[in-house]
Amino acid sequence: MSAGTGPAWLEIARRDLLIAFRRRAEAANPLVFLLIVAALFPLGVGPAPQELSRIAPGVVWVAALLASLLSTDMLFRSDFDDGSLEQIVRSPSPLYATALAKMAVHWLVSGCPISLVSPVVAGLLYLPAAAMPALLFSMLLGTVTLSLVGGIGAALTVGLRKGGLLLSLLILPLYVPVLVFGSAAVDAAAHGLPWHSELAILGGFALLAVTLAPLAAAAALRINLDS
Protein backbone atom coordinates (compact mmCIF):
# COMPACT_ATOMS: atom_id res chain seq x y z
CA MET A 1 0.00 0.00 0.00
CA SER A 2 1.43 3.35 -0.93
CA ALA A 3 1.03 5.82 1.87
CA GLY A 4 2.05 9.18 0.52
CA THR A 5 1.94 10.47 -2.99
CA GLY A 6 3.56 13.87 -2.66
CA PRO A 7 6.74 15.19 -1.14
CA ALA A 8 6.93 15.51 2.63
CA TRP A 9 6.05 19.21 2.71
CA LEU A 10 2.84 18.48 0.84
CA GLU A 11 1.91 15.78 3.35
CA ILE A 12 2.58 18.25 6.16
CA ALA A 13 0.43 20.93 4.54
CA ARG A 14 -2.35 18.42 3.90
CA ARG A 15 -2.32 17.32 7.53
CA ASP A 16 -2.38 20.91 8.79
CA LEU A 17 -5.39 21.66 6.58
CA LEU A 18 -7.17 18.58 7.88
CA ILE A 19 -6.50 19.61 11.48
CA ALA A 20 -7.73 23.14 10.75
CA PHE A 21 -10.85 21.70 9.17
CA ARG A 22 -11.52 19.58 12.27
CA ARG A 23 -11.25 22.73 14.36
CA ARG A 24 -13.44 24.99 12.29
CA ALA A 25 -14.81 26.72 15.38
CA GLU A 26 -11.30 27.74 16.41
CA ALA A 27 -10.60 29.12 12.95
CA ALA A 28 -13.65 31.37 13.27
CA ASN A 29 -12.23 33.12 16.34
CA PRO A 30 -10.13 35.70 14.45
CA LEU A 31 -13.16 36.59 12.33
CA VAL A 32 -15.35 37.13 15.37
CA PHE A 33 -12.55 39.18 16.93
CA LEU A 34 -12.37 41.34 13.80
CA LEU A 35 -16.12 41.96 13.91
CA ILE A 36 -16.14 42.83 17.60
CA VAL A 37 -13.21 45.25 17.36
CA ALA A 38 -14.86 47.01 14.43
CA ALA A 39 -18.15 47.15 16.32
CA LEU A 40 -16.45 48.83 19.29
CA PHE A 41 -15.34 51.86 17.28
CA PRO A 42 -18.80 53.41 16.67
CA LEU A 43 -19.35 53.08 20.44
CA GLY A 44 -16.06 54.79 21.18
CA VAL A 45 -15.86 57.58 18.62
CA GLY A 46 -19.56 58.12 18.00
CA PRO A 47 -21.87 56.85 15.29
CA ALA A 48 -21.48 59.80 12.84
CA PRO A 49 -21.07 58.18 9.37
CA GLN A 50 -18.70 60.89 8.18
CA GLU A 51 -16.31 60.40 11.09
CA LEU A 52 -16.46 56.62 10.82
CA SER A 53 -15.87 56.46 7.09
CA ARG A 54 -12.80 58.69 7.53
CA ILE A 55 -11.15 56.31 10.00
CA ALA A 56 -12.55 53.08 8.49
CA PRO A 57 -9.47 52.11 6.38
CA GLY A 58 -7.13 52.33 9.37
CA VAL A 59 -9.54 50.67 11.78
CA VAL A 60 -10.22 47.70 9.53
CA TRP A 61 -6.53 47.23 8.82
CA VAL A 62 -5.47 47.43 12.48
CA ALA A 63 -8.24 45.03 13.50
CA ALA A 64 -7.27 42.60 10.73
CA LEU A 65 -3.64 42.80 11.76
CA LEU A 66 -4.45 41.96 15.37
CA ALA A 67 -6.82 39.20 14.29
CA SER A 68 -4.06 37.64 12.21
CA LEU A 69 -1.66 37.95 15.15
CA LEU A 70 -4.10 35.99 17.36
CA SER A 71 -3.60 32.72 15.52
CA THR A 72 0.10 33.17 14.74
CA ASP A 73 1.34 31.84 18.07
CA MET A 74 0.10 28.33 17.27
CA LEU A 75 1.78 28.12 13.86
CA PHE A 76 4.61 25.84 15.02
CA ARG A 77 3.82 25.40 18.70
CA SER A 78 1.63 22.31 18.61
CA ASP A 79 4.12 20.52 16.36
CA PHE A 80 6.92 21.51 18.72
CA ASP A 81 5.04 20.35 21.81
CA ASP A 82 3.98 16.92 20.58
CA GLY A 83 7.25 15.94 18.91
CA SER A 84 5.99 16.26 15.32
CA LEU A 85 8.57 18.93 14.62
CA GLU A 86 11.39 16.47 15.35
CA GLN A 87 9.95 14.14 12.73
CA ILE A 88 9.48 17.03 10.30
CA VAL A 89 13.09 18.16 10.70
CA ARG A 90 14.27 14.59 10.04
CA SER A 91 12.07 14.26 6.95
CA PRO A 92 13.51 14.53 3.43
CA SER A 93 11.89 17.86 2.56
CA PRO A 94 14.06 20.90 3.24
CA LEU A 95 12.85 22.78 6.29
CA TYR A 96 12.49 25.86 4.08
CA ALA A 97 9.77 24.14 2.04
CA THR A 98 8.05 22.82 5.14
CA ALA A 99 8.05 26.20 6.88
CA LEU A 100 6.70 27.86 3.73
CA ALA A 101 3.98 25.20 3.45
CA LYS A 102 2.92 25.69 7.07
CA MET A 103 2.84 29.47 6.62
CA ALA A 104 0.77 29.05 3.46
CA VAL A 105 -1.74 26.92 5.37
CA HIS A 106 -1.83 29.55 8.09
CA TRP A 107 -2.70 32.18 5.48
CA LEU A 108 -5.38 29.95 3.99
CA VAL A 109 -7.13 29.46 7.34
CA SER A 110 -6.62 32.95 8.80
CA GLY A 111 -5.41 35.65 6.38
CA CYS A 112 -7.62 34.61 3.51
CA PRO A 113 -10.93 34.48 5.46
CA ILE A 114 -10.03 37.71 7.25
CA SER A 115 -9.53 39.38 3.87
CA LEU A 116 -12.83 38.06 2.56
CA VAL A 117 -14.75 39.27 5.62
CA SER A 118 -13.06 42.67 5.76
CA PRO A 119 -15.39 44.37 3.22
CA VAL A 120 -18.35 43.42 5.41
CA VAL A 121 -16.64 44.90 8.45
CA ALA A 122 -15.72 48.01 6.46
CA GLY A 123 -19.34 48.32 5.40
CA LEU A 124 -20.34 48.56 9.06
CA LEU A 125 -17.99 51.55 9.29
CA TYR A 126 -19.46 53.31 6.23
CA LEU A 127 -16.42 52.80 4.02
CA PRO A 128 -17.45 54.00 0.50
CA ALA A 129 -18.23 51.20 -1.91
CA ALA A 130 -15.61 52.57 -4.32
CA ALA A 131 -12.89 51.61 -1.82
CA MET A 132 -14.01 47.99 -1.42
CA PRO A 133 -11.89 46.51 -4.25
CA ALA A 134 -8.81 48.29 -2.88
CA LEU A 135 -9.57 46.93 0.60
CA LEU A 136 -10.06 43.37 -0.60
CA PHE A 137 -6.95 43.24 -2.78
CA SER A 138 -4.69 45.05 -0.33
CA MET A 139 -5.90 42.67 2.40
CA LEU A 140 -5.29 39.57 0.29
CA LEU A 141 -1.74 40.69 -0.50
CA GLY A 142 -0.97 42.19 2.89
CA THR A 143 -2.10 39.22 4.97
CA VAL A 144 0.31 37.01 3.01
CA THR A 145 3.14 39.11 4.42
CA LEU A 146 1.55 39.05 7.87
CA SER A 147 1.40 35.23 7.91
CA LEU A 148 5.00 34.92 6.70
CA VAL A 149 6.50 37.52 9.02
CA GLY A 150 4.40 36.20 11.88
CA GLY A 151 5.83 32.76 11.14
CA ILE A 152 9.34 34.03 11.90
CA GLY A 153 8.17 35.27 15.30
CA ALA A 154 6.28 32.03 15.96
CA ALA A 155 9.39 30.00 15.13
CA LEU A 156 11.57 32.15 17.38
CA THR A 157 9.25 31.87 20.38
CA VAL A 158 8.19 28.25 19.88
CA GLY A 159 10.23 27.00 22.83
CA LEU A 160 8.81 29.49 25.31
CA ARG A 161 5.85 28.57 27.50
CA LYS A 162 4.30 32.05 27.44
CA GLY A 163 5.54 33.24 24.08
CA GLY A 164 2.40 35.13 23.12
CA LEU A 165 3.27 38.58 24.40
CA LEU A 166 6.90 38.38 23.32
CA LEU A 167 5.71 37.29 19.91
CA SER A 168 3.60 40.42 19.50
CA LEU A 169 6.47 42.63 20.69
CA LEU A 170 8.75 40.99 18.15
CA ILE A 171 6.59 41.11 15.09
CA LEU A 172 4.19 44.04 15.48
CA PRO A 173 6.96 46.51 14.48
CA LEU A 174 7.53 44.41 11.36
CA TYR A 175 3.81 44.63 10.55
CA VAL A 176 4.01 48.44 10.36
CA PRO A 177 4.97 48.76 6.66
CA VAL A 178 2.08 46.50 5.66
CA LEU A 179 -0.31 48.53 7.81
CA VAL A 180 0.92 51.85 6.36
CA PHE A 181 0.67 50.87 2.71
CA GLY A 182 -2.47 48.77 3.17
CA SER A 183 -4.49 51.51 4.79
CA ALA A 184 -2.99 54.08 2.39
CA ALA A 185 -4.30 52.07 -0.56
CA VAL A 186 -7.81 51.96 0.90
CA ASP A 187 -7.66 55.63 1.86
CA ALA A 188 -6.61 56.61 -1.65
CA ALA A 189 -9.40 54.57 -3.19
CA ALA A 190 -11.94 56.14 -0.80
CA HIS A 191 -10.92 59.56 -2.08
CA GLY A 192 -11.12 58.47 -5.70
CA LEU A 193 -7.36 58.49 -6.18
CA PRO A 194 -5.32 55.75 -7.89
CA TRP A 195 -4.24 53.05 -5.44
CA HIS A 196 -2.30 50.62 -7.59
CA SER A 197 1.15 51.81 -6.56
CA GLU A 198 0.43 50.99 -2.91
CA LEU A 199 -0.80 47.59 -4.03
CA ALA A 200 2.41 47.05 -6.00
CA ILE A 201 4.46 47.86 -2.91
CA LEU A 202 2.40 45.38 -0.87
CA GLY A 203 3.09 42.81 -3.58
CA GLY A 204 6.79 43.56 -3.26
CA PHE A 205 6.63 43.02 0.49
CA ALA A 206 4.87 39.71 -0.05
CA LEU A 207 7.50 38.51 -2.53
CA LEU A 208 10.31 39.52 -0.22
CA ALA A 209 8.62 37.70 2.66
CA VAL A 210 8.04 34.55 0.59
CA THR A 211 11.73 34.32 -0.22
CA LEU A 212 13.23 35.26 3.13
CA ALA A 213 10.73 34.47 5.90
CA PRO A 214 10.83 30.65 5.54
CA LEU A 215 14.63 30.84 5.65
CA ALA A 216 14.57 32.75 8.93
CA ALA A 217 11.83 30.55 10.39
CA ALA A 218 13.68 27.36 9.46
CA ALA A 219 16.85 28.60 11.15
CA ALA A 220 14.89 29.61 14.26
CA LEU A 221 13.18 26.20 14.43
CA ARG A 222 16.52 24.40 14.21
CA ILE A 223 17.93 26.50 17.06
CA ASN A 224 14.88 25.80 19.22
CA LEU A 225 15.05 22.06 18.56
CA ASP A 226 18.77 21.81 19.30
CA SER A 227 18.54 21.35 23.03
Binding site: S2, E11, I19, D82, Q87
Partner: peptide, 25 residues
Protein backbone atom coordinates in the same frame (compact mmCIF):
# COMPACT_ATOMS: atom_id res chain seq x y z
CA UNK B 1 9.83 11.10 24.23
CA UNK B 2 6.90 12.90 22.62
CA UNK B 3 5.02 10.52 20.41
CA UNK B 4 4.30 12.93 17.52
CA UNK B 5 0.64 11.89 17.58
CA UNK B 6 -1.88 14.60 16.77
CA UNK B 7 -4.88 14.47 19.13
CA UNK B 8 -7.26 15.80 16.48
CA UNK B 9 -6.46 13.07 13.98
CA UNK B 10 -7.43 9.41 13.99
CA UNK B 11 -4.79 6.66 14.39
CA UNK B 12 -5.07 5.96 10.68
CA UNK B 13 -4.50 9.59 9.72
CA UNK B 14 -1.59 9.91 12.12
CA UNK B 15 0.15 6.89 10.65
CA UNK B 16 -0.61 7.95 7.09
CA UNK B 17 1.16 11.22 7.83
CA UNK B 18 4.21 9.53 9.32
CA UNK B 19 4.45 7.15 6.39
CA UNK B 20 3.88 10.02 3.96
CA UNK B 21 6.90 11.93 5.25
CA UNK B 22 9.13 9.35 3.61
CA UNK B 23 6.62 8.13 1.07
CA UNK B 24 7.35 4.46 1.73
CA UNK B 25 6.14 1.76 4.08
Amino acid sequence: HDAAVKPGLTPFENLRWHAGLWGRT
